[in-house]
Amino acid sequence: MTTLAYVVAYVGVVFFVIACVARFVMWSKMPMHMRWELYPVAHEGGGKAAYGGSYLEDTEWWTKKREVSLIGELKVMVPEILFLVALREHNRKLWTRSFPFHFGLYLVGGATALLLLGGVVAGFLPEAISQPAERLIGLLAPALGGAGLILGIVGAIGLLLRRRSRALRDYTAPADLFNLLFFVVAFGVAAATWLLYDRDFSMVGAFVANLVTFNLAAVGDGTAGLMLVLSVVLLALLVAYIPTTHMSHFIGKYFAYHSIRWKDDPNLPGGEQEKVIEELLSRPVSWSAPHIGADGKKSWLDVTLEDQSK
C-alpha cells in the first residue's frame, strides 16, 4: 500500500515537471508575432510605467538607448503572483475566493518544499546542522501546510459556489467543477489526515524524507497510515493533472505578459529581428479568400507585394 503511494508520488511529480517544461517550451518556441502590447508596460523606464507611457513618446526614439527596468517588472509581477492584484482591483468578489485558493496553494507548496528540504537535511547533513534545522521545519511546515490546506479548501468551495452565479454558470463546463472538486477532495483528505492523525506533520515529514532518500519504508499504522497514503495519492494525482488543464495558466501567464502585453522591443534597422521576420515572410500562405491570391506556394512576401492596382 505504502509502496503504491511512493510510486504515485514519484510519477506525479515527474509528470508535473515534464508537463510544465513541455508547456514552457511550447510557449517559448512559438514564432515571433506582430506586436500587440498593452499599456502600461511595467518595464518602461523614466517613470513612464506609472502612467502607461512608452518610449514612443521620446523624440526620435530609435536613436535613444531604451530604458528597460527589471525592477519595474518585479514591482508588478511579485504582488500580482502573491496577491492577485489585477483580480483584486477589477473583480473584488471573485478575489475574495480566488486569493485564499491561490495563497493556500502557495502555502501548501511552501510546506512541501520545507519537508523536502527537511528530508535532504536529515539524509545528507551532519546532525549538528540537521537537528536544529529539522526542529525549525517541524514548526513551520505544519503551520504553513495546515493554513494552506484550510485556505485552499475555503477558496475552492467559494469558487465552486461562485460558478453557480448567473454570470458564470453558463460559462462553466463540467470539467471546471470537477477541477475545483478535485481540490476540495484532495485537500480535504489531507486536512483530515493532518487534523486527526498528524498534527505535527511527523508522518508526512517522514514520508517525504523517505521519498528524497528513495527509502520506500512504510509510514504510519492502521487508519493513520491509510489516510496518509490516500492523501499522498490524491495530491500526487492532482499535481499531475494541473498542467494538463487550463489551470496551467501559471505558465501561460508568464508568456502573456512577457511575450505579448509587455513585448515592445522594436525591430531596429539592421537588427537581429529583421532576419527572423524575413524568414517568416517567406513562409507559404494558404488562406482561401480570392483577394488573398494564395495558392499554398506563394509566400507572405509574394502576396504582399503583388500589384493590387488593377
Binding site: 473583480n91 471573485l94 454570470a167 458564470l168 460559462y171
Partner: peptide, 16 residues
C-alpha cells in the same frame, strides 16, 4: 499565433 493560442487556452471565464 501566440496571442491567439494564449487567449484560446487560458481564459478562466471569470468575467472580470
Amino acid at each position: 499565433l501566440q496571442p491567439f493560442e494564449m487567449s484560446m487556452e487560458h481564459c478562466a471565464r471569470c468575467q472580470t
